[in-house]
Every structure is written in C-alpha cells, then in structure tokens.
Design a protein around this nucleic acid. Structure first.
Lengths: 220, 220
DNA sequence: GGTAAGTCTCAACTAGTAGTTGAAGGTCCC
DNA sequence: GGGACCTTCAACTACTAGTTGAGACTTACC
C-alpha cells in the first residue's frame, strides 16, 4: 500500500482508503484484476483530505464539497470561508482591558507594549481620568506582534507592516467613500459588507504573495 | 429562555444549552431554586460556541480547549491555528496550470490576468518552449485578487499590496539569512519553520490592524 | 504448483459526537 | 391551584467515521 502517505499519517489504514472511496472523495483507477491504482494526484488528494481532517476538523462531507467546487473552478469565496463570516467580521466583543490585562493576555512585555503604542500599532482609548483602555482589536494585534517579536523582529520592523496596513485601509476607504458620504443605514451596511469582504481578500492576497515569495526563496 | 440568541441560531434548543453545560463549555450562574441564569457574557460565549460549530465545523472538545486557553491568556499560536500548520505551510500541491486553466479556476478575465502579471502579482514559470505555467501559489493569489477586482479595485491598487508583501518578505528574509547562508538541511528546516510562523503572524497582524482601523472608521 | 501475503466486496459491527426524549418532580406567577 | 415554565437523570436516537470478518481472488516467490 501507499507508504509515502504513512510518513505524514502513520495511522492511515487500508480500510480508511476504501471508506473514502465509498464516500466518493477519491476515485482511484483500477487494474485489470480490480486492484486500486493510486496516481500521484490521488496521493496528493488523499493527503489533502487527511490534512483537512487533522488540522481543521472538517467533516468528510465538507471536504468533499470543497474538493468538488475546487474542481469546478467555482467561486472561491465559498471555498475559503475559514474565518469569520462577513456579518461578524467587525463584530466587537465589547472587551476592554487595562494595560496590565493586555500584557497578561498577550504575553507582551511592558517595554514591547510601549513600543507598539509608539509605533502606532496599538491605539488605546484615552479616558478622561487619564486612564487608557485597550479593546479586542488591540489584543489581536498584540498577540500577532508578540509572535513576530519572539522571532526577533523589533518595533521599527513592525512599523513597516503598520504602514502597509494603513495604505491598504486608504485603498479600501476610497472604495466605500461614496456609500459613507450620506448617513444612510442601508448604505452603511453595504459599506461594511464590502469592507469585510475586501479586507479579508486583501489579507489573503498579501499572505498568498508572501507565501509564494518565500516558497521560491526556500526552493533555491 | 434566551431569545436573543435565537435570532442568529433559530434551531437552538433548551436541551442543547443543558448539553453544553454538561460538557463543561458553559457555567451559567444558578438562582436559589436552581434555575440557570445567563449573564451577557454567557450569551456571548454561547454565540461564540455556536458560530465555531456552524462556520468552522469545530468539535465541541476543540472549542472547549480554545475557550480554556483563551481564558488562561495562553499562547495564541495554539489558539488561532485556523490555517495550515507550520510544517505544511509551504507544502506545494505540485499543481501546475496553463493560463487558460488558471482563468477558469480563478474566474479572472484574460485582461485582468495580464494586469496581474504586469504588476508582478503573478509570476508564471516560463518553460523553454515558450509556454508559461502557473502554480498553486498563483491560483491563491488570482482568487484573492479577483475578489478585490470585483469590488472595484484595479491593477495599480493591487500593486500597492504587492509592494507591501515584498517589503514584508525582505523583513522576514533578514530574519533567517544567517540560517540560510550555509546549506545545512537542519538550518533550512528551522528557517522554514520560522518563516512559516512569522509569515502567518505577519498576515494576522496586518489583517488585525486593517480590521481595527476599519472598525473605527465605521463607528464614526 | 503450493503457499504466504496482500487485495477485493459486502455486510455487520463499533466508538464517538451531538444531541433529544421522557419521567418525575420543583418553581413561578397570575 | 393550575398552566407554563424549569430542574435532573437515564435512556434513546441519528449521524459520522471508520473497523472487522467472511469468503473469494491476485501477486510474488520458492
């Protein structure tokens, strides 16, 4: 049987392969005597299925439909909904934290927290009494920043990322400026939807480009 | 019972609430007589659970452990692995497509495809016979780009995103340059790991910043 | 040609997840 | 005091994701 796959998935059984075929997820060729013959593409496909199961806990039905829509070259918006759905994309949890709480929740050091504020990555709300309060946006930013800091990046590097994000926001802002000009709730909702989808697509685009570049870098 | 939740989740049953408590996902207060009392936070928590189930197909066990690590203020790397795991982050599927196939799979028009190539978002491999071939990186890029184009962005706007991505790659490259200087397989693997985590964190950071900015924009 | 190891189908079985249902009883509130 | 709600607890159900076993066939090797 396919031993290559067993490197990544040691618990892969023959019966599971048969089961996957029974569910219509794979369709290996057959030899004259009825044995299954797996092409490299079949192996890739099985690896994909197993990875989706293991890493994203997707039910086989969902994997199957994604494979199918991928094959049809379908609208990828339906294929990659791994993330919040548009309506909830900007849904704030109402969380608000003191600097101390943010430090605990993000794992940042006070020094790094200050750096992030200085470089404009974190934008706490200033309350009249002189206190400052962070929101859930800031927590997400702080956590991501901490991962990068741990790898050796510093405030000034993160600033580059912030500038890029700002430029992207300007871009998106232009897109919905006409809708936001008048304070009409319907237009506002429409704008939020466009922004949600575009922001998500923009993030995907950026990540895809980075990934492509890095892959080529590593291939050398 | 909680009717607010039924707006988003019409099929939510009382027995399901009790089941969730039985599984340890929620712990509502109790009145003196033993009735469950749901605070707004409880409602938020339940909504989160139901959303993870509905949108990401996560098993309750996984949701529970994510809630728990969120509560402990744990390493968010474990909390947000919605995406490929480090080892497979750069795993190519070996896919290669002709321009026509890419157009079909991405839904781009030939004109937009040309634009993306011109602006350096797509970088096909040129084969000796003069043919060009796209890879799976390019498909991901093309699909994300198409979502933005559909919202009204154009080639020159996407170029801005590409430049930002390039700058981010330069940043990350510096991070692993020492490891890649000598062709040692162990160092190479280590570099790949760092790049995978950092690229993912960088994408998260960028998206978080954009989201925060846009949210503030919409709040005005 | 024999035989061991592997494969085939098909049906039955199993383990786990995610709840639902029903019985017996307590609480709330008009 | 009665109807509508809530409580627990055990049993039951539906579905997913396989495993196991029987009986038959194939492949490889001596």
């Amino acid at each position: 049987m396919i031993t290559t796959l067993r490197e990544e998935f040691p618990e892969l059984s023959v019966s599971k392969i048969r089961f996957l075929e029974g569910q219509g997820l794979i369709e290996p060729e057959r030899s004259a005597s009825g044995y299954r013959l797996f092409s490299p593409e079949d192996v890739q496909r099985i690896a994909f299925i197993l990875r989706e199961q293991r890493d994203n806990y997707l039910p086989l039905k969902v994997i199957k439909s994604r494979l199918a829509s991928w094959e049809r070259g379908d609208d990828p918006a339906d294929v990659t909904p791994s993330g919040p759905p548009p309506e909830s994309y900007f849904a704030a949890s109402g969380l608000s934290m003191t600097p101390e709480e943010l430090i605990k929740a993000s794992g940042l050091s006070p020094r790094h927290l200050r750096e992030l504020v200085d470089h404009g990555l974190l934008t706490p709300m200033e309350l009249p009494e002189g206190k400052v309060v962070y929101r859930d946006d800031d927590l997400a930013i702080a956590r991501a920043a901490r991962r990068l800091i741990r790898q050796g990046l510093e405030g000034r590097h993160l600033r580059v990322i912030r500038l890029a994000a700002d430029r992207e926001v300007e871009l998106l802002q232009q897109l919905v400026a006409p809708l936001l000009r008048h304070r009409n709730p319907d237009n506002r909702r429409r704008a939020a939807q466009i922004l949600a989808d575009s922001a998500h697509a923009g993030a995907q685009l950026g990540e895809s480009i980075v990934r492509a570049r890095i892959r080529r870098l590593l291939e050398r």
